[in-house]
């Protein structure tokens, strides 16, 4: 069973900071190791910024999850922006349309255990990540 989710809007720079803080709080609560907390908060920061910059804003949902063996955190980043036309390209290290380093998506994927993208041009993008306790 999963616990109740916490949601935050992502509309300003300050909201990205709030997402980081919420994710850290939950990561500590589920007892992720310090390195895993750091990886998860970093991934969340990258993806929340993408939601803001590329998606034109959206919402983040943070949920404590459990399976038979262990606990973890699931975070969903949803926007109704332009979507991602070429997903393979977007997931390539160094590719950017926003003038950044092009490490946001590809880098965030490396930092988590599960990474799923649902995107459609013109409809928006939803990215779901999960980090499990070891």
């Amino acid at each position: 069973m999963n616990d109740e989710s916490q949601r935050l809007p992502v509309v300003t720079d300050q909201d990205v900071v709030r997402v980081r803080q919420l994710v850290r709080t939950v990561a500590v609560a589920v007892k992720l190791s310090l390195v895993d907390q750091t990886k998860l908060v970093t991934a969340a920061s990258e993806l929340a910024r993408n939601t803001l910059v590329y998606g034109g804003g959206g919402e983040v949902e943070v949920t404590r999850v459990h399976n038979e063996r262990r606990g973890g955190i699931r975070i969903v980043f949803a926007d109704r922006g332009p979507g991602i036309a070429d997903l393979d390209l977007a997931l390539t290290d160094g590719y950017t349309t926003g003038g950044g380093l092009g490490l946001g998506l590809s880098g965030a994927r490396r930092l988590v255990d599960e990474f799923d993208i649902d995107t459609e041009p013109g409809k928006g993008t939803t990215i779901t990540i999960v980090k499990w306790c070891r």
Binding site: V35, Q37, T38, K39, T42, E46, L101, L103, G107, A108
Partner: peptide, 14 residues
């Protein structure tokens, strides 16, 4: 730089 930050940065690709 904290050790966990260094590990994460390198894995991120930076």
């Amino acid at each position: 730089m904290r050790p966990a930050v260094a590990i994460t940065l390198v894995e991120l690709g930076l």
